[in-house]
């Protein structure tokens, strides 16, 4: 556990999501984990000045690198960007010294309402033209690059003109934003829409990925749902190995939001990810690991 950096600074290795259930564990002890990711909105409080959760986070923050992960930017919505919210995020990033901030390629509401759900976009030129200036605006307000996550999806649109990975790649090229590649989401969407998840990985430019997510899904028989309430499943670990071979030892976060295990259970998942990072993410080991996986042994 925690083979990588474990003091404030830039995250590396495998981190875990800080959820309220674990606040006391982290505030009173110093569990060994490389870094933490917070859900930004949980620390904004009533007016962006934070409440009890932020007080605890600021104590915890002393001992771990932290990154911010948002769920309400609603980048793809046709509603205007919420500048008050963006400024609250900026303040939170400043007081927590978070290393970066991320959100999703989706929309969460329209007409002034927030559905608190990560809703899919059609992959069209129109949508690209809608998104690019909004990403530029976010980056201008925040003063740094946005890290954008691919979502799990359960429906597609007949008028999409490109694949999700082509759409994401174009966004990174046009705006300079980076990607949070959620390996579980790639797998869930691949099963739900019958594409090859490796094609997704291979379609993403190598230098654009800032972070990985891993999580557990639920199998509903006809489709998979990104529930974040299970350990990471074997097919996702397998795809993660592929991602490490392609992108290197990118900081990886274990996301677990529902039916939370005791902290030790979560840390075990992070430890597994770090073992794989060492085995598959090291440039010198990549060739050997890849060969070993396909049954060849270097002489």
């Amino acid at each position: 556990m925690a083979r990588f950096a474990s003091k404030p600074g830039q995250p590396s290795g495998a981190g875990v999501g800080l959820r309220s259930k674990y606040h006391r564990d982290f505030a009173t002890g110093k569990p060994k984990v490389s870094w933490l990711e917070i859900v930004s909105e949980n620390y904004l409080g009533l007016d962006g000045r934070g409440g009890r959760a932020l007080e605890l986070l600021l104590q915890i923050r002393e001992h771990y690198p932290v990154v911010m992960h948002g769920v309400s930017l609603s980048l793809g919505s046709v509603d205007p960007l919420n500048l008050d919210y963006l400024l609250q995020l900026k303040r939170l990033k400043s007081v927590t010294s978070a290393s970066w901030y991320s959100d999703h390629l989706c929309w969460t509401g329209v007409g002034g309402e927030n559905l608190h759900d990560l809703l899919p976009l059609p992959y069209t030129m129109d949508a690209l033209q809608h998104l690019c200036p909004r990403i530029h605006k976010v980056q201008e307000v925040m003063g740094e690059r946005l890290v954008l996550e691919n979502v799990s999806s359960y429906l597609t649109f007949a008028h999409s003109e490109m694949t999700e990975w082509e759409f994401l790649s174009t966004l990174t090229r046009r705006t300079g934003c980076e990607l949070l590649l959620d390996v579980n989401n790639v797998y869930v969407s691949a099963i739900n829409h019958s594409f090859d998840p490796r094609e997704f990985l291979n379609g993403i430019p190598q230098h654009t990925v800032r972070q990985f997510h891993l999580a557990g899904y639920s199998d509903n028989g006809t489709h998979l749902v990104d529930t974040h309430d299970h350990p990471v499943w074997p097919p996702v670990w397998s795809l993660y190995r592929e991602a490490l071979l392609r992108f290197g030892p990118i900081p990886t976060l274990i996301e677990w939001d529902d039916r939370l295990p005791p902290l030790d259970g979560l840390l075990e998942e992070a430890a597994k990810a770090e073992i794989l990072m060492e085995a598959y993410g090291n440039p010198n080991a990549r060739g050997a690991s890849a060969l070993a996986e396909v049954g060849h042994h270097p002489s």
Partner: peptide
């Protein structure tokens, strides 16, 4: 009709997941 009917789920079942 913009939402794809893709067996084993029809478009409405897919929307209802959300």
């Amino acid at each position: 009709s913009s939402v794809v009917n893709a067996p084993p789920l029809d478009r409405f079942e897919r929307i209802d997941i959300y």
